[in-house]
């Protein structure tokens, strides 16, 4: 489940960075700073996902749990910010 989630998140963020963000930026140039922040968060989350995928192959549950908690913190913050900034413009 953990690896499936990592792959799913990676694909989702790749779609946003490659399709959604450029198209929104074209229609709403004022979003430039927001998109830059979201892209930086995508890069940070990609690093966390990579670290988690490496940890899953090691036997220590404690370190995996810490990595999952860190991912939850970062991702929750990222999703909240993205919804707050983009959804009013998509609706």
């Amino acid at each position: 489940n953990c690896l499936t989630l990592c792959r799913g998140l990676h694909i989702h963020h790749t779609f946003e960075s490659g399709g959604l963000f450029p198209s929104m930026l074209e229609r709403h140039p004022e979003l430039a700073a927001t998109i830059t922040t979201l892209e930086a968060e995508h890069a940070k989350i990609a690093g966390l996902l990579e670290a988690l995928q490496t940890l899953v192959s090691t036997p220590s549950t404690t370190s995996v749990l810490a990595a999952v908690d860190e991912l939850i913190t970062e991702l929750t913050q990222h999703l909240d910010y993205e919804e707050e900034q983009l959804i009013p413009l998509l609706d």
Partner: peptide, 28 residues
């Protein structure tokens, strides 16, 4: 309209899945 709702749905699914993964890791 529907695109915003779709994004929220996708995000909701990731939030739920991640909480599930956390429970699985914590109980393993």
């Amino acid at each position: 309209g529907s695109f915003g709702a779709a994004l929220r749905l996708i995000h909701g699914a990731f939030r739920r899945e991640l909480a599930l993964v956390r429970r699985e890791v914590a109980s393993s």
